[in-house]
Design a protein around this nucleic acid. Structure first.
Length: 218
DNA sequence: ACCCAGGTGTTTC
DNA sequence: GAAACACATGGG
């Protein structure tokens, strides 16, 4: 018997606490974190956000005007620092030029339009765009990252392979509930951290009874 | 000395 | 179209 997405969510909610999983004081900070965390551990992201805060750079206008070399040095621990510095400053200029410096304003329009707009920016793909919309804008979207997809596939909760199809399927199943959608992504990431990466077989994994599988590259 | 992380963009078959 | 590669630091 395959699991339903609601069952996976419910079971994982009993297993992990993701109350303040994406700590942030503003939509802009979420956007910065979303870019910095690409292919990077979250602890390093927090470090870099603190550095930016210390330099008074958690601000759209000041970050846009900041010296690029300085920004690169401050975010160096997050890796890909040249690419990420450029992506961040491009985003800042976009928010200033198109949305009068209001990050929240960029996340308030029609959902499909917002997604397309974000993904048209350099270095913002589907996962980054959806993270910003979900955790920064409180919009009801699911981040269908590859390991989420893998677990949902293996448990039989979702049989799609394509990012967009999985996203829409989960959104359909859970309904337009940002808390549920945000929790599910966070919980699946936590599950992957604890089990799926450490050992080839999901030993001790809460989903083990029906989900025992080898982990491939993401 | 390897392998990988809360991805994305470009190049190549 | 999919696969392979580049981007880069830090921790296990």
């Amino acid at each position: 018997m395959p699991w339903t997405i609601e069952e996976v969510l419910s079971l994982l909610r009993n297993e992990y606490d993701v109350q303040s999983w994406w700590p942030s004081s503003s939509a802009f900070e979420v956007a910065l974190g979303a870019i910095l965390t690409q292919q990077t551990r979250w602890e390093n992201v927090l470090l870099c956000l603190d550095s930016l805060r210390d330099h008074g750079l958690l601000d759209v206008e000041r970050l846009a005007a900041a010296d690029t070399s300085l920004l690169e040095e401050l975010i160096r621990p997050c890796g890909f620092f040249r690419q990420k510095a450029h992506r961040i400053q491009y985003l800042c200029r976009h928010i200033l030029d198109v949305h009068g410096g209001e990050t929240a304003g960029m996340l308030q329009g029609g959902l499909d339009e917002c997604r397309r707009e974000l993904m048209s920016l350099p270095g913002i793909g589907p996962e980054t765009a959806d993270s910003i919309l979900l955790y920064g804008g409180g919009r009801p979207v699911f981040v269908a990252a590859s390991y989420c997809l893998r677990v949902l596939n293996r448990t039989g909760a979702c049989s799609f392979q394509d990012y967009e199809e999985v996203r829409e399927n989960v959104e359909q199943e859970l309904g337009p509930d940002p808390l549920a959608l945000g929790d599910l992504y966070a919980l699946l990431v936590e599950l992957a951290k604890e089990h799926c990466r450490k050992q080839p077989i999901c030993k001790g994994c809460p989903l083990e009874t029906r989900c025992s599988f080898k982990v491939g590259r993401t």
